[in-house]
Each structure stands twice: as C-alpha cells, then as structure tokens.
Design a binder for these strands. Structure first.
Length: 1192
RNA sequence: GCCGAAGUGGUGAAACCUGGCAAACACGCAACACUCAAAAUGUUGUGGGCGCAAGCCCUUGCGGGUUCAAAUCCCGCCUUCGGCACCA
C-alpha cells in the first residue's frame, strides 16, 4: 500500500473539523491551556514559509500539551489592518478592503493545509468592524483616563512619496559622506529617498506612566514571574532605559541684570509673610529689589487711584524688572502693567486672583478693586507670566488661578506652599519662579563642579522666553530651523560631528561654585529626554568633550582616577604615616624601535614608567625631564603630550618605608638624539631602566596608574568617564565620586530623579487602512473645557473632591480636560466605520486620505450638538495587535455578567488568560510585547482583567533562511510552502522544518535535505503495514524496551524545551532499532512510537492509528506516553578506560560495580596491562557507571 | 560605540545547562546488492594524517588558565550575525 499523503491529509483535515478535535469547550474546558502564536499579517502572495515554520513549531507544542491532558486552545486570526497590508495593496494596485477578502481566503486555506490544530471557530481579523469596534473602544477608555493625549511631534516624511512614514518604513542605511565618515541614515522603504522630519500634531498613549511597572515586572520574584527568554527581557529593559540621577537648577543670567519689584497683598507689608526673606535671597544674587509699603495695606484706604499714584511715584519699572506680587498685590500689578508704556521682563503672581473674589473674606474690595482689565495689553507688557498657586490655598479657589492663567496665557505652576496662601516666612518656590532657571538632568551630579558650559536642545522652551536678550538671535533661529528640519541624511553629511550655536548674551550660573557659564544650543541634546538641557562636563563626558574641543570651551577635571592598594604587599600600613607628594609619571618613547623606556623595580616587583617627585619650583614637565635624565641618562628628549589628567595613587611605598599618596600626571616624552649621561649607581639601587616593546606594554605594566596612562596613550581617550576621587570641587575634594553624587546634589538643592528612555506611544497614522481614531473635535466644547481645564498634571488629584468646581468638572473626562475640544465618540456609536475611499493612497498633505471625505469628517458634537469635525487619522497597527489575545476566547461569546459592554467575557477571560505559551518572532520582542503589556496593565488598573502580565511564557522562534541567505523576493529565493505540501505532504514539510535546527535558533532551508524526512515517513508507513502481526511476539526484548522508554523521556523533554530537532532524531533512532528487531515488537511499542510521532506528523499518525491499528477516536486526544524510570537503566555499561585522560580501551561492565572491581577489570585487559607496566600508577579516578582514569 | 547570540566534518547539526568515548540523527559522497538499465529501496563505509595491519598521532575560531580529564568552566583576543544608537 502506498503512502498517499495527499489523500490522507485532505481526509483527516476534514474529519478533524467535523469531530471538533481541536476545539476545547471554551466555557468548561478543564486544565485550560492557551497556546498562542503571533498572528500573521496577510498578503495575497500567501503564507510565507517563515510563517509556516513558526506556526508548525507552535502547533507541535500545542498538540503535545493536548495529549498531556490539557484543554488546549490554539486560535488563529489575521493582523490585516494597517500599513503592511495597505502597502501591499498599493503595490499591486488593488484596494486594501477588497484585497483583504482575497488574502483572507487564501491564508486560511494555506494555514489549514499545514495541518495545525487551530480552533477555527474563534478566528478573528483586525479589519473586521466587529473587532476594531473594540480597538476604538480601548482608545476611548485610555482617553477618558487621561492616558491618550495630543502633542506636536516631528514625523518621518518622504518628500518623494509625499507621505508620512512609520518608523518601520524607514530603513537605516549606512553611508559614507564626502569626508569618508560613515554614518547611518534613514531612507524610504519604497523609493529609497532620504527621509526628513516634519512636525504634526498627533495622538499619544502615555505608556511612560507604566515605565516602572513594565520594568519591575520583567524581573519578578521567583513566585510565578515571567518565563521569558533572557534576551527578550534584556531588550525590554534596555528599551525602557531607566537611569537614576539628579535634577539641578542653573540660574540664567543675561547681560542686563534683572531688578525686582515685590508687591505685597491686602493687609500685608514689606515685613510680612515671605517678603523680607525673599528680598534677602534675591539680593544675595546681587540684584536690586524694591519692596514698597503699598497704600492698600491699610484696609480703609484701598483704592485704585491711590495705589497707582503711589506706584508711579515710588517704584521704578524698566524692561528688566520682574514683578513678584502676592495675593491682592496681583491686581495692583496687573493694573500697573496695563498702564505701562513698555514691557517688563517677567511677572510672577503668587496666590493671585483675577477678580476680587476672595473666599471667606470680608470684601471691602468689591467697590475699590472691582476692576476690569485689558488682558491683551497686560500680556504684551508682562513679558513672561507665571501664576503660582498653592494647591491647599484656603483663600484663593483654584478656579481663580486657572482663569488667571487662561486670561493671561501664563504658565500655571501648582505647588504645596509651606503655609496656606504662601503665608510662611520662607517660600522657596517663589524664589525659583522669580529667578530664571534652567533645570538639568544628570546621572553624574558628582561632576557638577566640572560643568563648564550648558547646552539646550534646539526646541527648548526657554529659548523663546529669552529671545529679547539673545544678541545673535538671527543666527540662533537659523540653527533651530535647520535642526528641526534636519534629516538623517544631513546627519550623514555631518558625520557624527556635533554642531551648535552659542547663545550670546546669555549666561548660566553653576550652582556649585557660582561661576558663569556660556549657554549653547546643540542638537546633540535631545528634547525628549530629561529636561532637554544638560550641564556639560567635558572632562568626564565624551560627547561634551568632543563638543568642547571643537568650540574651544574650557575643560575642568573634577574626578581623578584613584588607585588604592588595600591588599597585597603594597597595601597601606596603618603603622606608617602617609606622605603626600606631587609626582611626575612618564614614558620615554623611542620612535625608531617603537619601544618605551620603563623602570623595573626588581626588589619591589613593580613594573612602571619613570617616576619622580615634583619639587616646589617645578612643573610636571620640568620634573619629569629632570627625573628621566637622572634615572636613565637620556638627555635628548622632548615633551610630546600629557596622558590624561591628574591621577591619584595611594599605597605603601616600601622603598621609602612610608605610605604614599601620590598626586600625579602622566606624560609622554620622545627621544630626539642618542646623548646619554652617566647614571649614578645610587639612582640604580632600586630600579633599572628597561626597554619595552609597544605591544608588550599593556601586559608588562603592573601598576594601576601606569596601566591607566598607557590606556590613555593607546586609545587617545583623554576624557575620564569612570569613578574616582573628587578634585577641584571645594569642600568635596577627596570624596569618593560615587558618594559625592548625592552630597553635591543636596548641596545645590537638587532633587534625585529617575529618568526613562521610553517615550510615549505615537498612535496617529496619516493613512487609510486602519481603525479611525474615535474622536471628534468641537470648538464649542473647547471653550467649555478650557474654563475648567486642569493645566497642571502633578497636583490635580490633591484638589478637594467635594468642591463645587470638581462637580462641574465631572462633566468632562480627564481626557477632555487635557485636550480641550476633543470629545470621544459615545460607546454606543461604535464602531466608527472606515468608509470606502476609492483613492486610499497617502496624500502629500500630512493628512489621512479620510480628510478628503466630507461625509466622514463632518459631524455633530456628541456632547453639545454643535457642528464638529471627526478625527481623520487612523491608529497604529500595533494597537490592533496589542489586545487580540484577549479577544480570541470571547469571539463567539457575547459578553455577560457585566453592566456595561466590554470586549471580552470576564469569566472566560479569567479561565483562559494569561496566555500559557506565546510564540512569536524576535522582531516583536520589544514593541509588540511592550504595548501588550502596557494595555494589560491598564486594563488591570481599570478592573477589566485581573492580571497585569498577559503572557506567562514567551519564546521567540528563530529565523528561517534559504541556502545560507535571507529569503527575499529580490533574491528570488522565497520558499512557497504550498509547493512542498503538494510534492512531499504537510507532514514531511512539518518534520523537515523542525528537523533543521533548534526551533529557537532558526534553520537553513535546503531542498536537498527534505528527502531524508520523506524517507523516514515512508519507512514509518511501510513499517506499520508490515508489522501488523507484531502482537504475536512475546515481550522479551529488554534492549528495545529500554530504548523505547529512553525515547519517551527524550522526546518529552525535548518538546518541552522546543528542541524539536533532537526529538525527531530520537524517533529516527527508535524506528531504526524497531526495524532491526521486528520479531521482538509488541503492540505497545507500536502505539507509543506513533503517539510520540503524532505532534510532528499529525496526518500520517492519525491514518495509521485509526486505519492500521484500528482505533476509533483520534490519536491527538490520546494520553501522552509516560516512561518508567526503572526501565531506563541497563544491566551493563561501557566502561571507558583512560590513561592520563586519553581513551585507551573500553569494555562492558555490570552496572553497579565499585572502584576496586572496575580497577581489576581495567587492569585485566592486555592493552592496559602493557601500558601500565611501563610506569608507576600515581592516581586512579573512577567515575561510577562511566569511566576509569589511570594516571601514571 | 553599547547590548545580545554564535563560531564543531563536504553540509544541517548533536554533545555545552550538569566537565568524563567529539561529530548522535540526517543530507551529501563512495562501494556493493536488487535491475537488461535507471529510479526507488537496502547493506556497508565516510573528521584529518601515518600505516599492509594491529595501531599511533592530530582535531571543536585563536591564545592562556583551572582539572586526573575541557567543545563544555574561567581570563584575554579574533570573526560573523542580530538589536540599539548622541538618552546626559
């Protein structure tokens, strides 16, 4: 009988579907096991063999788990919404909606043909409105809770295709520029044009809110944590990129110094509240302060006229004036600004109010201070405006502060004052607002004293505020414009060379030492990270060093490499005193022979360069020169360069019998002639000069400081980024730099801060083929929302809930308040269906093609009914796939048991999730998995699920290549699985793919190899048809039994570890043996082998199981064989006999023998006897059950 | 530059976690059997060198170390592949 795989495979695929072999009872399944494989995005070219490879590997695992008695759920679906599918449609000139239907059909057919045990009942497609309805719903949930927001952000733009590109569509290319520097740059996937940046306003998800949790959960306590491969965990950890450091404020100084006018409040005075303190603090900075006693301090006299007349007469305002006004003083300040004929520098309103509405206060003001203002006038005159509000203010309600900031377009800063309404005698937040500051994030606050300049990102907001005081504004603006538009291609032209422009007229003050620093803007500082500004410490940061060198900025060392002997012969001795000495270290170079003159301190075991003390009237170079001549005699020498900066070395100097603390510098000298002086024998006493070859230096030198200097010489890296001892930092000198970090931070009033590299998730795509973002923009609601807008994010929750304001606030969700004008589509109006647009191709406008469909975007505001406009962007494909695993089990089950409709059934979700085994491509180990984890955490927080990690176990499959090269259409080496299914059968293809290499490693598909597996299956087929009467034979074959049990053990373990290749090889070995010993077969051998084979070759094994062995039910529902540990052991083993670790003989020995018996056995052999006789036995090692090693 | 993975026959690979006969299992190749012949199938052989042979020597990218014993553990280097890339 012939193995007719075509017939067999088609037959069983149908039967399986009919018998629902692979469909667990979703509601009741016992031991539910969710076996998930990342769903593919389909193209009409059909299933790639890489997809097949991954799916088969996942399926084998699922089948194995099913036979282990689990209710396995193995769903399948298509990720056909999004950019990949759209691009494919563009390429072949089809419409994605129509193409999706064609691709879907083909894909499902192909997926069926490879024989996977899918639950076909639960399939889903991301472009199905029934699915993306929920994708939109999820967007709305995030929006409501303030986790979806709008922000301007540069996007990738292809000027040739005139379209926005997703990051994945930008290919990184390495190119060399004209200078020969190599850099990478982005080019368009489709047309190869250089990609530039363009700014657009987009939707983002605040994944950064979960940064810490995303990081922490990766490395959970042993109890039920994430079983993921380390590689993926590390990749995620790097992506999140946590770093701890400090935020430190630098004060900004301009040529024209500011002066201050402090205006107290009602009933206050220059000696009340924080005013005396504030005046003193500002004066400390050397600025002039005016602090008048205003007429309104006397309640009865409060009036506009009087206050104003007083101000004009007594207080001087100019363009450098900063007004700080407290409480009712704010009203006076505003009126003054309205009348002023020129703008001032800055206005700080502390606990101020727009209208004379003071809570719980008697109000003589209504008549005297019921003023009206011309806000536009005030805005232009006030310069920068800051509204400082105390979140616990008992006098000024918060809505007043919000209104004030709205009316004036001011920056609202909400803090917790030391006393309510800023009534304490010291209020540091006021000082911070009054002075101009640049906040900086650094992980090295210990190097603060070495900050010699400051750099702002080109987009830094402060630049705008300082505009009037920047003397080279035109140049600066030009740089900013260029930087913003800068494409990666431009970067290539520049190499990685840093560029920047100095802000002339602007200085910053180093808070550690009060020194004035120049301020630069440069695009090597990124807007999106930290505060968008850095303190530059060129001596200890390579980037800053490079920049400082290019622009000739000062470099100050503040950390010295520190070498401290705490053990060994040079260890500090407590009984000796420590002598500090300035020391010159040098290497003398002989260019011709490429050797260096060093010192060998034979008695002390030191290998060093030339060492010498620096005398009072000498500098390092002079001292080194003198020392070289004294100690080596060479006098024709020339100084070449310093090797790094100061180095500290603390050790016990045996030759002088003291502890020495040497502070020194390394230098390189070169020999210029062969003149040599005599060296006094006294100088030769402790050490003698030796010449060392350049390539030996690294190994020869054995003192830390010299090793370091040699490294500097070799690498040319003068910048020291390591830890060490603090120098040039005032009272912190001598401290360990690691310890100094937080002491210096504290000293300058900095804050400890944790930064993450992770950025918020950009959701908007200006494309067609995706779920429309379910948002509507309404001008009417914008005004409403702004009135109550919560401008501050930090203290929003502190605000008392019971107040009338918060009740009114509840009319708007957090998202609506944070994004005034944006209203979510009501849930019962979902889905927002993607309209059919004939010309769906991306436009050159930076807008989605949906923006051309009037009937789509013209709508009414669901909140107020006014005319409104729908969002026309669609969401990122990653959003579709970030939650599909939650949907699968609930696809066919309408939700139940919950009040409001949600995308999944809670009970079923509880039963099936988290996913027990998730297999997918390594290329998704960062983004897809991170996004899925983020959404799951969010769902947990809003109580939609009760777990916060979606995938308990994840493994990445390897990449399948063809004949040693990546498969690609341009190479014409793409393998079409259909062909192989047709020619060899699905079972053969399955086994071949898995046999190639470990599943997690990936394999090399070579046509030649597949026949081996085909032969194997042919042999299985023939074997079973010939061995039909095996049951006649007695069970007398111990050897075969043992192999059978060993194979069960091996295959079981290998499948668990995804080592399918070795599992298959074990099956081959077993078949070989069974064929050889047909006579000793029993029926149990036949079933066991077949069951072990079943996950790999499901059709063949099913056919034999039912039609040859005569079973009625599917083999795939059978119990997985168990091995008997007792059956694994043999009665004899091969004793390996080694002489000196080399195998000389082997012999069969009974399993349990001890050392003596083994020895006797070994010596018994002629061969061994001969060898042993020639020498004396030193030692005998016996490894029970394995070998004996005789050492002679 | 940083992070990660990997280097073993003509080829895919196994043994690496847990040190103990390196190359399992397959492909390919060679010879033989069956055949008029071929295909298919089967049998045998197949890391390299020396040898008629028994046997001996060498061999897991390179160099060192630990050990009775190293592909396996440790240190240093080289090469290839993958990811990130001015993250202060």
């Amino acid at each position: 009988m012939k193995y007719d795989f075509k017939k067999i495979e088609a037959k069983w695929q149908k039967v399986w579907q009919k018998e629902k072999v692979y469909e667990p009872d979703i509601k009741k399944a016992k031991k539910p096991f969710y076996n998930l494989m990342m769903f593919p995005y389909p193209s009409a070219e059909g299933l790639h063999v890489g997809n097949a490879y991954a799916f088969i590997g996942s399926d084998i695992y699922g089948r194995f788990q099913r036979m282990k008695g689990n209710g396995v759920f193995e769903p399948i679906g298509l990720d056909g919404f999004g950019i990949h599918s759209e691009n494919y449609a563009i390429k072949i000139g089809a419409h994605p909606a129509e193409q999706a239907q064609i691709s879907q059909k083909r894909f499902y057919k192909q997926l069926e043909s490879i024989g996977n045990g899918f639950s076909w009942n639960e399939k889903l497609e991301t472009y199905d409105p029934a699915y993306y309805k929920w994708t939109q719903w999820i967007f709305i949930q995030l929006f409501r809770r303030g986790l979806a927001y709008r922000k301007k952000q540069p996007v990738n733009w292809c000027p040739s295709c005139k379209t926005v590109l997703a990051d994945e569509q930008v290919l990184q290319r390495q190119r060399a520029n004209s200078k020969g520097q190599v850099a990478t740059g982005g080019v368009c996937e489709r047309c190869d044009a250089k990609v530039i940046k363009k700014e657009l306003e987009q939707w983002f998800f605040k994944i950064t809110n979960y940064a810490e949790k995303l990081l922490k959960n990766i490395n959970p306590p042993a109890s039920g944590g994430l079983d993921w491969s380390d590689k993926v965990k590390i990749a995620q950890r790097n992506w999140i990129g946590k770093s701890e450091g400090a935020e430190i404020d630098f004060e900004v100084k301009t040529k024209e110094e500011p002066n201050f006018a402090l205006l107290h409040g009602y009933g206050g005075s220059p000696s009340g509240d924080f005013f005396p303190w504030l005046k003193k603090e500002i004066e400390k900075h050397g600025y002039k302060v005016q602090l008048p006693l205003l007429p309104h301090s006397d309640k009865s006299r409060a009036s506009e006229k009087e206050d104003m007349e007083f101000l004009w007469k007594k207080v001087k305002f100019d363009k450098n004036t900063t007004i700080v006004a407290h409480s009712l003083g704010s009203v006076v300040a505003l009126k003054a600004l309205e009348k002023l004929k020129y703008p001032i520098r800055k206005l700080v309103l502390v606990g101020g109010s727009l209208e004379p509405k003071f809570k719980d206060h008697e109000r003589p003001f209504s008549k005297t201070f019921g003023w009206k203002f011309n806000y536009n006038k005030i805005k232009t005159n006030a310069g920068k405006i800051i509204i400082l509000h105390d979140s616990n203010d008992s006098i000024i309600p918060r809505d007043q502060a919000v209104k004030l900031s709205d009316a004036l377009d001011g920056e609202l800063i909400e803090v917790s004052a030391n006393r309510t309404h800023f009534n304490a005698s010291e209020e540091p937040s006021i000082l911070e607002c009054a002075l101009d500051k640049i906040a900086v994030f650094t992980t090295r606050p210990d190097t603060l004293f070495g900050a010699t300049y400051m750099v702002l990102a080109p987009e830094h907001p402060l630049i705008e505020n300082l505009e009037s005081r920047i003397q080279n504004l035109a140049e600066v603006k030009k740089y900013i414009r260029k930087a913003k538009k800068k494409s990666d291609e431009d970067r290539i032209a520049e190499g990685k060379e840093k560029t920047g422009v100095k802000l002339k007229g602007i200085k910053a003050v180093n808070p550690a030492n009060g020194k004035e620093l120049p301020v630069w803007i440069a695009d090597y500082v990124l807007t999106g990270y930290g505060t968008g500004a850095i303190m530059a410490v060129p001596a200890h940061d390579e980037r800053d060093f490079e920049f400082a060198k290019k622009y000739k900025l000062p470099i100050t060392q503040v950390v010295a490499p520190y070498f401290f002997a705490d053990k060994g012969k040079d260890a500090i001795r407590k009984d000796k005193k420590t002598i500090r000495r300035k020391t010159a270290y040098s290497f003398l170079w002989d260019r011709e022979s490429s050797r260096y003159l060093c010192l060998d301190w034979e008695k002390f075991g030191w290998h060093s360069g030339i060492i010498g003390g620096v005398e009072e009237n000498e500098d390092y170079v002079k001292a080194a020169k003198r020392e070289i001549i004294e100690e080596t005699g060479y006098s024709n020498i020339k100084f070449v360069k310093y090797l790094g900066k100061e180095v500290h070395n603390h050790f016990f100097a045996a030759h002088k019998d003291v502890n020495r603390y040497a502070v020194g510098r390394g230098m390189l000298f070169e020999i210029t002639g062969n003149k040599k002086e005599a060296v006094s024998p006294d100088d030769m006493k402790n050490h003698k000069p030796v010449w060392i070859e350049a390539d030996k230096m690294k190994d020869w030198l054995n003192l830390g400081n010299f090793k370091y200097m040699w490294e500097v010489l070799e690498s040319g890296k003068e910048c020291f980024v390591g830890n060490g001892v603090i120098v040039n930092s005032g009272k912190f000198d001598g401290l360990d730099s690691e310890k100094a970090k937080w002491e210096i931070t504290k000293f300058v009033g900095g804050k400890r801060k944790t930064q993450y590299r992770l950025r918020d998730w950009l959701i908007s795509r200006q494309r067609y083929w995706g779920p429309p973002i379910p948002m509507i923009y309404c001008e009417e609601c914008k005004k409403q929302a702004q009135n109550y807008a919560d401008r501050t994010q930090t203290n929003a929750d502190k605000f008392p809930r019971k107040s009338a304001l918060s009740q009114r606030k509840s009319a708007f969700s957090k998202g609506e308040l944070g994004n005034p004008g944006w209203i979510a589509v009501p849930e019962n109006k979902l889905p927002v269906k993607l309209p059919f647009v004939k010309d769906f191709r991306p436009r050159g406008t930076g807008k989605s093609p949906l923006a051309t469909v009037k009937s789509f975007y013209e709508t009414k505001c669901p909140k107020c009914g006014a005319k409104a406009r729908r969002e026309t962007d669609v969401s990122d494909t990653f959003l579709d796939s970030a939650w599909y695993f939650l949907r699968y089990p609930s696809v066919k089950i309408p939700n139940s048991g919950t009040k409001s409709e949600i995308p999944w059934n809670r009970e079923i979700t509880r039963r099936w999730l988290p996913v027990d085994m998730y297999i997918g491509g390594a290329e998704h180990s960062v983004l897809h998995l991170l996004y899925s984890r983020f959404l799951t955490m969010f769902f947990k927080d809003v109580e939609l699920v009760d777990f916060d990690e979606p995938f308990s176990k994840f493994r990445a499959h390897g990449l399948l290549i063809k004949e040693g090269a990546k498969m690609s259409k341009s190479k014409g080496n793409v393998v079409n699985p259909d062909e192989y299914v047709k020619n060899f059968g699905a079972d053969t293809l399955r086994m071949y793919l898995m046999f190639l290499a470990p599943f997690e490693q990936g394999g090399d598909f070579r046509d030649a190899g597949i026949v081996g597996v085909k032969r194997f299956l042919d042999r299985v087929w023939r074997f079973y048809h010939n061995a039909n009467d095996a049951k006649q034979y007695a069970n007398d074959a111990k050897e075969l039994d043992r192999l059978l049990h060993q194979t069960i053990k091996k295959v079981t373990g290998d499948i668990e570890g995804l080592s399918y290749n070795t599992a298959i090889s074990a099956l081959m070995i077993l078949l070989n043996e069974m064929e050889k010993s047909q006579k000793s077969l029993v029926i149990s051998h036949l079933s066991v082998f077949l069951k072990l084979l079943a996950p790999f070759a499901p059709h063949l094994s099913e056919e034999i199981w039912r039609n040859v062995l005569g079973h009625r039910t599917s083999i795939h529902l059978e119990q997985w064989p168990k091995y008997n540990p007792k059956m694994l052991k043999a009665e004899t083993f091969t004793l390996v006999i080694q002489i000196n670790g080399k195998v000389r003989d082997t012999m069969e020995a009974p399993t349990g023998i001890g050392k003596e018996e083994a020895e006797k056995l070994a010596m018994g052999g002629e061969k061994i006897k001969n060898i042993v006789e020639s020498g004396k036995i030193k030692k005998i090692i016996y490894v029970p059950g394995r070998l004996i090693n005789i050492v002679i």
